[in-house]
Design a protein around this nucleic acid. Structure first.
Lengths: 269, 269
DNA sequence: GCAATAAATTTCATATAAAGGAATTTATCA
DNA sequence: TGATAAATTCCTTTATATGAAATTTATTGC
């Protein structure tokens, strides 16, 4: 599972360790396993972990290492690309108040969609992204699909090529079905695919376009299937689209942050 | 502002840089400033940043560096100390559904309280912690105060000594007033101090005790002052306390993670 | 639109700090 | 309690990080 010869500098190796600590299950991970998975000696891992701990990035409980809360605090600031999360907050609050359903804000990040924020509605909704900070392959879930559908063709194809196997792994659409859904999404401008994660639940996603007309994010709703029946659906779509437009208009055209997903895309490759 | 001679290893220096990137404002920070603030040469900072970027921790937009979304994704897992956030989710959902107010889950981290999760109610509430991942000095805000009030005396005194100046800086209680509130909180078991962040808003916090009887977290409610008037208040207190008890009972007595705040406490010093 | 300035990279010789084998201590399990 | 395995410390060799200086690239003023 470990790659061939990637982590050259000591720093990158240490960051790899940090990543492994993050990937470990809730109980934490032992030095031995860490060293093994990272492909380095135990003393090396040990000293890196000591430094990581000294800086408050990991904590050592007994002989298990886990990510520290300081790390969590630091990272809370990371979602603020373009201040998107802050910008979107009122939008999410309005949607939540108007619809009384669970609302998601997703952003594209390479081949994935990341849940940047989420406001809970009255029904406990299980989403593909899980909680804030969770991610899904682009194409899985309504908001995620909405973003993918509205990407420029070249990028979209690259993502599809990369993600189709991952979608199949998760028992989702095959390529043909995905393309049908994408086309539908592109035509109607929103996604209503019932992915059947939980029976009786349904979702709805719309893309958010930046000043350059790129689909950089999505707003979506997760609720009971009952609440997206034909008589209510069009209203919800209209509200979502209106808020997506509002949010898009707020994206600073001079900020180039979201304009270069190709960079983060390549970083995933 | 920079410390004297702390970051010796290259790793710690790099982590310091990462921290500085996180502390920078939304637009990102330039290499020059980074190098200056970190107290290292520009080439050194540069290569560290390159590695950080290659591992997906920071991203470089033009000539500014900022925390990358990958970092956000990784750190989302850091809140799961003891799986507390997951454990608490149903509790928060129930509270949110029952009270239809904004609900907070705070955990203690050294001299601070960190907002681990939050469910929005119908009224936009501004809290001291801000959003998820935000932090406040222990003693500021109802939940934070609830934790502080129920700490063992020695720890409580240490925190008070450390935090009083910070509280004063923020125009909050002086030591005498704080001690009055702490005593009140300890006696009645919950905090209802109207901190007056926004007129007309009010909050309520209760401590969450682990199996060892330590106040490791707090549940709190933020709402309109109107909604915490005498006729509704006792009911809300009862519900909050009941859920706090439920949550406390779910904390694994064999997990030692929250039992050693002294460690993280010293790390702040 | 062009010069002047400042910042960002790259290069390179040097010193220093990171690496891992081996030994020691500490914890875990029978 | 004894045996095993992991964690930590020690130490030398090697390799990597470092900052001065140089080069390229961007930014600012005119």
């Amino acid at each position: 599972m470990t790659d061939s010869a990637e982590p050259l500098s000591s720093l990158r190796r240490a960051l790899g360790l940090l990543r492994l600590v993050g990937a470990a299950e809730a109980g934490g991970i032992r030095l031995k396993d860490l060293a093994e998975q990272a492909g380095c000696s135990q003393p090396t891992a040990h000293r890196a972990l000591q430094d990581l701990a000294a800086e408050g990035f990991v904590e050592q409980i007994g002989k298990r290492y886990r990510l520290a809360l300081d790390f969590f605090v630091l990272a809370a600031r990371a979602g603020h690309a373009d201040g998107l999360r802050d910008l979107a907050k009122p939008v999410l609050l309005r949607l939540s108040a108007t619809l009384t359903d669970t609302i998601f804000l997703l952003v594209r990040n390479g081949y994935e969609a990341v849940c940047l924020d989420r406001i809970e509605g009255p029904f406990p909704i299980r989403s593909f992204t899980g909680d804030i900070g969770g991610k899904v392959p682009l194409g899985l879930g309504q908001g995620s699909l909405a973003i993918l559908a509205h990407l420029p063709e070249a990028e979209r194809e690259a993502v599809i090529r990369f993600n189709v196997p991952r979608l199949l792994d998760r028992g989702f659409l095959d390529e043909a079905a995905l393309r049908v859904e994408l086309e539908k999404a592109r035509v109607q401008g929103w996604v209503n695919l019932n992915t059947g994660l939980i029976p009786g639940m349904a979702g709805l996603g719309v893309p958010v376009f930046d000043a350059q007309g790129r689909a950089v994010a999505a707003l979506s709703v997760g609720t009971l299937a009952d609440r997206l029946r034909p008589e209510r659906l069009p209203g919800v779509v209209a509200i979502l689209k209106a808020e997506a437009a509002t949010l898009g208009a707020m994206l600073n055209p001079f900020d180039t942050a979201l304009r270069h997903p190709s960079r983060s895309l390549s970083s995933v490759a």
